[in-house]
Design a protein around this nucleic acid. Sequence first.
DNA 1: AATTCTGGTCTTATGATGAGACCAGATGAC
DNA 2: GTCATCTGGTCTCATCATAAGACCAGAATT
Lengths: 157, 157
Amino acid sequence: MVKRVSMSDAECPVARALDAIGDWWSLLIVRDAFDGARRFSEFQKGLGIAKGILSGRLRHLVTIGVLEQVPASDSSAYGEYVLTEKGRSLFLVIVALRQWGEANLFAPGERHSTLVEADGLTPVTPIELRSSAGQKLDPRNTRVRKVGQSLERQCPP
Amino acid sequence: MVKRVSMSDAECPVARALDAIGDWWSLLIVRDAFDGARRFSEFQKGLGIAKGILSGRLRHLVTIGVLEQVPASDSSAYGEYVLTEKGRSLFLVIVALRQWGEANLFAPGERHSTLVEADGLTPVTPIELRSSAGQKLDPRNTRVRKVGQSLERQCPP
DNA sequence: AATTCTGGTCTTATGATGAGACCAGATGAC
DNA sequence: GTCATCTGGTCTCATCATAAGACCAGAATT
């Protein structure tokens, strides 16, 4: 991704992550890939994105190893874009965004799509951050330790 | 946020979330707010963002209720930006991004900042998505149920 | 063989960004 | 009290990114 201000060499993993997939479209492309989208036209129709932008985003996601182009799944001569392991590991990022959106961006009673377990019925429970002792962690009892330092909180959270 | 393509009315919570806070800077501003940044100049120095852009982003984050402007914490006449409950609930989104970045964007042995527990030493364990029965969930055993539908996966994940 | 589909590229108009000049009110130094 | 400086912005301008659609070559379909 060529952008004005690059954070690809930041030592904060949040900044690097946003530098890699923090633009308007990348995570939506990954979301559709999780849903089974594989072909250029599937992404384009599902997202309503301009073809030129989609072309650039797919190329970028392939470059950084989130997607890979494979020859074909059926007998077609056209290639397909599939998630790599690196791409599949974005699952929790998208789930976290989904759960924040569900909790904060819908009016009470407003309908939205729901992530459910394999039975198609049970909504998944909210993800949690727990300590090694099993205690629930939140911003107040965590801090960021910078490289070479010990107890100073500099790159949050 | 005025953008060309708006997803603020999408029924997919992921799309709405990205519409609200999915731009280049918003999550970095929230990250710095978790770290204790409160003043305009703190955000500006910490991020290296242009003042005009920061001004617009802060205004947007206040508008959508992620930040709020409070009169002062010390005796200054200048206001401060603090996270609301809605903003604090972005904690897991940022942690998910951090953990993905740590695992995928750093060379082996490359140093990066680390999220640790309150003791300042113990790194937090990776977040997980678990079913109500306690089973670990991943993209293969979850699906998205669209509103009004039952078993069709249309808005992932 | 003709037509349509697919996966793009290219062009153009416009919105967003980065850098910095500028400014009014608050604060601090003397 | 007065002057200099700090703070939190706004405004302008050049440049980059995006949206929309025309266009095109090869593949697939009829």
